[in-house]
């Protein structure tokens, strides 16, 4: 604890923050690294992909909304286990999760993405972009796949994914925070911990800068998701109102 890191945060404290976030991440991931490795080359057959493509648009939208909602519930659990998060006021906890949960889901998605054949884990097996054709939003799907590929290219360790997820979630960029200083203090510590780990792991000095440069893309993807949802809802209001998970509607509608 004697050695001081940036901003006079002790290295011991940075280490404690990092360990807490890594543990929270590992405890709240839907799949362990081992499970993902075992599944990595189990891909949907041609017939299975055709089956997804043949689904009515609203059915596939509903299926994706359910999967996203499921993933978000794990992200809420991740947030709750981060030291300091539950000490923020309830308004800010809700705001940070409302605006950041989908971004964290997208960051976590890179764990379940195989960049060698551009496939993602969906409904138990890996499949390519064509699996989501029936959603009718090729631009969004293609942008999400591009993002996952670009994040995979950085070859992040599980520890780095954990800290980056926390940094994305605990962000002072969100509007209407009631205690932005408190959020900022927590965010700074997370960034220092991330910086410390990345300097240790990567030869590339710009690795952290490259990672941070992906954040605007994350935000753009979430905006695109909201726009596509609105467009879909205009055509299928009943599907959204009656069949979509209540948490999904609460967060995005």
């Amino acid at each position: 604890d004697i050695q001081l890191g940036p901003n006079n945060v002790s290295m011991g404290e940075l280490d404690r923050i990092a360990q807490n976030i890594i543990k929270s991440h590992l405890e709240t991931c839907q799949y362990t690294t081992e499970e993902l490795q075992q599944l990595a080359w189990q891909t949907h057959s041609y017939e299975e992909v055709k089956m997804f493509q043949g689904k009515p648009r609203d059915v596939l939208w509903q299926q994706c909304a359910i999967q996203i909602t499921h993933a978000i519930q794990y992200v809420v659990e991740f947030a709750k286990r981060i030291s300091g998060f539950m000490e923020l006021c309830q308004n800010d906890q809700i705001l940070l999760l409302k605006s950041g949960c989908l971004e964290v889901v997208l960051v976590r998605m890179c764990r379940a993405f195989n960049p060698l054949n551009n496939t993602v884990l969906f409904e138990g097996k890996y499949g390519g972009m064509q699996m989501f054709k029936a959603l009718g939003c090729d631009d969004l799907v293609s942008a999400v796949f591009d993002f996952a590929k670009s994040l995979c290219a950085l070859q992040l360790t599980e520890e780095e994914i954990a800290l980056f997820s926390a940094a994305v979630l605990i962000s002072t960029d969100r509007p209407w925070l009631m205690e932005p200083r408190k959020v900022q203090k927590l965010q700074e510590k997370i960034y220092f911990a991330l910086q410390h780990i990345m300097q240790k792991n990567h030869m590339d000095e710009d690795a952290l800068a490259k990672l941070i440069s992906r954040i605007p893309t994350l935000s753009a993807l979430c905006t695109l998701h909201t726009e596509e949802l609105q467009a879909f809802q205009q055509l299928h209001p009943e599907t959204v109102n009656v069949l979509f998970p209540p948490l999904y509607k609460e967060l995005f509608n």
Binding site: Q73, V76, E77, Q90, N91, Q93, L97, E250, L251
Partner: peptide
């Protein structure tokens, strides 16, 4: 905000499983 996000608020209130 709590009123508009009852499910999220409830998830935050639930004890960590």
């Amino acid at each position: 905000l709590k009123e508009k996000h009852k499910i999220l608020h409830q998830l935050l209130q639930n004890s960590t499983s």
